[in-house]
Computed example of a mutant assay.
Amino acid sequence: MNRAVNVRDAATTALLRDAPDTGLEVLLLRRHASHVFGANAYVFPGGALDAADDDAELRVRCAGGAEAIAEAVGDQGFALAMAAIRECFEEADLLIACTANAPVSARRREVLRAALNQQTACWTDIVTEMDLRFDLDALAFFAHWTTPAGPPKRYSTRFFAAAAPDGEARCDGLETTHVWWARPHAAVAAHDRGEIELMTPTRATLESLARYPDAATALAELMQAATVRVP
């Protein structure tokens, strides 16, 4: 029996912010218990690449950073960066690396996000309605992990980092069920105590982030080409 599992391209984003008293925090979302891959694990917002992530309409809305992303990530760099941005909106209700020139009401935004999650609207539709303009210079590509061979699913995931935008993250109740702005070392310690689930790439990223005092320092270093990327 052939049990080979296709490897899907994916993108995820470590969203960073500073807390007044504790310093650097990173956004973690708990995956729904019904998932066959990573059930209940705390992860960064992310997911598989969609064909529409490379839509020409999205490219013309990019003010900067597309060439740098392509050089760092490869031929699919733009689409993967767009997937990272889209997934942050889908899973956490946060818009990163972009500006909305036609912002919508909170109720309309909720409707648009639900339609995207239910696949009754595509990302390009939402980008057009909100008149989003992208600046990919705000994204730092810093790692590439591929799920080991074997069922049930495999992903070739590019890891990005970005400053968290204003506004609070909200889980969608479908893909994600809990929001945690965690200090990196606290999340690792909670995993060591058996209190939460972390997948290997998430834990490794948290261990790396734990050495930074604040979001600005972390992003500045992650932007550098010498940053370690894990095959």
Score class of each variant (00 low, 15 high):
residue 196 I to H: 05
residue 151 P to Y: 04
residue 146 T to E: 06
residue 190 A to D: 01
residue 7 V to L: 07
residue 117 N to E: 11
residue 21 D to V: 07
residue 57 E to A: 15
residue 110 E to S: 15
residue 82 M to W: 04
residue 154 R to W: 07
residue 76 Q to N: 15
residue 82 M to L: 11
residue 162 A to E: 01
residue 79 A to G: 12
residue 54 D to Y: 05
residue 116 L to I: 06
residue 105 S to F: 00
residue 118 Q to M: 07
residue 163 A to T: 07
residue 48 A to W: 01
residue 88 C to M: 07
residue 16 L to I: 02
residue 100 A to D: 09
residue 208 S to T: 07
residue 176 T to P: 06
residue 141 F to S: 04
residue 38 G to S: 05
residue 141 F to N: 01
residue 192 D to T: 14
residue 69 I to S: 04
residue 160 F to E: 01
residue 152 P to Y: 07
residue 32 H to K: 12
residue 19 A to L: 14
residue 168 E to C: 13
residue 195 E to G: 04
residue 226 A to Q: 13
residue 159 F to V: 00
residue 171 C to E: 11
residue 42 Y to P: 01
residue 68 A to H: 14
residue 89 F to N: 06
residue 6 N to T: 14
residue 103 P to D: 13
residue 114 A to V: 12
residue 10 A to S: 15
residue 220 A to H: 14
residue 190 A to E: 02
residue 116 L to G: 08
residue 145 W to T: 04
residue 161 A to L: 11
residue 155 Y to T: 02
residue 63 A to I: 14
residue 32 H to G: 12
residue 44 F to Q: 01
residue 174 L to Y: 10
residue 39 A to I: 04
residue 161 A to S: 11
residue 195 E to N: 09
residue 157 T to W: 07
residue 51 A to P: 04
residue 209 L to V: 03
residue 181 W to V: 09
residue 17 R to S: 06
residue 9 D to Y: 11
residue 216 A to K: 14
